[in-house]
Amino acid sequence: MIDLALAPGLRTALAELLLTMADDEFVSGFTDSEWTGIAPLLEEDVAISSISQDELGHARALYQLLATVLADGRDEDALAYDREPDAFRHARLLDHPRGDWADTIARRFLYELADEARLASIGDGYPPLTELVGKLRREERYHRMHLVAWIERLAHGGTEPRERLVAALAAVGPDAATVFTPLADEPSLLEARILTRPLAAAEAAWRADLTGILVPLGLPVPPAVTPTTDGRTGHSDSFRWLWGEFTSVRRSEAGATW
């Protein structure tokens, strides 16, 4: 058995990393699951539903890992459903509502590539996370492929699709880098090789990746903004409504087994 003992400070730092990753996957997955049944094409209905299901599954695995790190008696369902809205730590990019199809494609494209850059920054310092991330990266390849295909399709889709995509990128772009909001104790995570590079370096890699896709299509690259520490707090009314939705069943009967 591998010794997974963590110093208290490192435990706190790891828990914050896991919480941000899990909340990002959970909120983005739940938001886009709203397309099930109403996506623009039947094939796309299947695709976006499958991607959302992947993200919710990733969130579940990350919350399970977080539960073992916190060891405070909460399981993955308690972590997902029993927190108040202000306790969520997803990035402000994912606070945006589902919106129309262009909004969804712009937001999810920016997020998928950001998530990929973050997953590529996870080192071998905490084996359970390293192993899970190895599996997640295989699955996320399909998401990237799908979102890049949609960006190209809307960019080449004539006047209205292109205009709507440009407007959507402009609306969510300024919040895109909030996925890389600095963690409270990145130095400890770097020293323990749980992270291999600061999130600021992951952001630079993400920006280069985005630029390589958006610039040839003549699309705007999200502006570089000064890193803020509040990119994962102070959530929108849109998220508060979503929280009411995704906790409604759980809140309806405390402690019930469904």
Partner: peptide, 13 residues
């Protein structure tokens, strides 16, 4: 390939 995603996560159409 019609759809990289299918009725379950492990299948395509």
């Amino acid at each position: 390939l019609e759809n990289a995603f299918g009725p379950t996560q492990c299948r395509s159409i």
